[in-house]
Computed example of a mutant assay.
Amino acid sequence: MPLLFPHVAHAHRDSASLASRESESHAKIALMQPSQIARDGTDLALILTCALILYSLFAGVLQRGLLRKLYGGAYDGLEDTASSKGNERQRISFTYHHVASISFGIILLIGAYPAISFTCGSGTLPTPLNGTSGITIGDILSILVQVYCGYYLFEVTFRSRYISFVALAHHIGLLIIAQTAAVLGSRASKSAEATKEFYLCVVWGAFDIVTEFPLHIVLIIWRIKRRNSRLCYKIACGCTAWVLAMAFTETIITAWLLAQSWAGWQLQWQIITPTIFTLWICTQLYGAAIFLRMARQQRTLQ
């Protein structure tokens, strides 16, 4: 049947096409709408508590015999604190590298799909996961945020004597950002800033885990092969390049996301968010400087 007003139909198609192109030209964060992230903040507090307990129990199992069975004399040398004052620091770091690598590996395995779907795909926080009606993308991400925060709470308390002030500032800032986003989301704020802040937390957390996961693994190798100066030098150089590359990539992506969504942020968030990210990147650069210093030390030992 011929159309009576073909120009009207063309106009509708053109407007729909224009709207589609406009939505595609903006980052997803710019189109975020207010949405409840977690359905019950009490559940999240329980998850955080359970995660912290499990990290502590796992570290206890590692220290009370499992690491010695796995590595034998390599771990005994770290545990012999009478021979060297620095061995206790190395033993503690050896333990938490194992806890971090396993926990980050689990978070990556479980959270890769919902994180990619939420940040880059068509998924939203209320979207059911794999078509199920009971569990949503927001539920999984909220749980993983608490597990992620639980690890850093564990590390702050576990390394209380040996953690640097810069690392401490990094961990505290991370915990405050993530928990603030979770609290705002659990209250179903009418402002889209809560959802946008959670979006940035997912992006930053993903970069942090992808950056830190291989570092913890290679630092385990470092402790085992600590007498091989040539290998340790290569490891330190590789870690320096990796951290710098990831920090540069994260800065570019974050700057683009903020530029795309800048008009939608209130003034206080326009100040707080870039400031927090700047401090975050400074800690990453400080970590790269530490690896570079380690490389120089190993080079002198060759």
Rank of each mutant, 00 (worst) to 15 (best):
A82E: 14
G60K: 02
R64L: 02
Y55F: 15
R91H: 12
L48I: 09
D139I: 00
I53R: 13
D76E: 15
N130Q: 12
A100C: 11
I37E: 01
F104A: 01
K69Y: 08
Q33T: 03
L108K: 01
H98E: 08
P128H: 07
T124R: 03
S142Y: 12
Q36V: 04
C120V: 15
C50H: 15
S35Q: 14
D139E: 03
D43G: 10
S103Y: 01
F104H: 00
R89S: 09
S56M: 10
G111R: 03
A30D: 06
I29P: 01
G105P: 07
G123S: 07
L125C: 06
K28I: 05
G111S: 05
I107A: 06
G138H: 07
A100Y: 02
G72S: 11
S83H: 13
N130F: 11
R64T: 08
Q36S: 14
S122T: 10
V99G: 00
S93E: 14
A82F: 08
F118T: 01
Y71F: 13
R64V: 02
Q90W: 12
V61S: 03
T49H: 12
C50G: 13
A51Y: 13
G134S: 09
R68L: 06
G131K: 02
A115L: 15
G138W: 00
T49L: 12
G41V: 08
P114F: 01
V61P: 02
L54E: 10
I140M: 05
I107E: 04
Y71E: 06
P34Y: 12
L57D: 09
R89I: 04
L144H: 05
L54F: 07
I47M: 12
L70D: 05
D76S: 08
G41E: 03
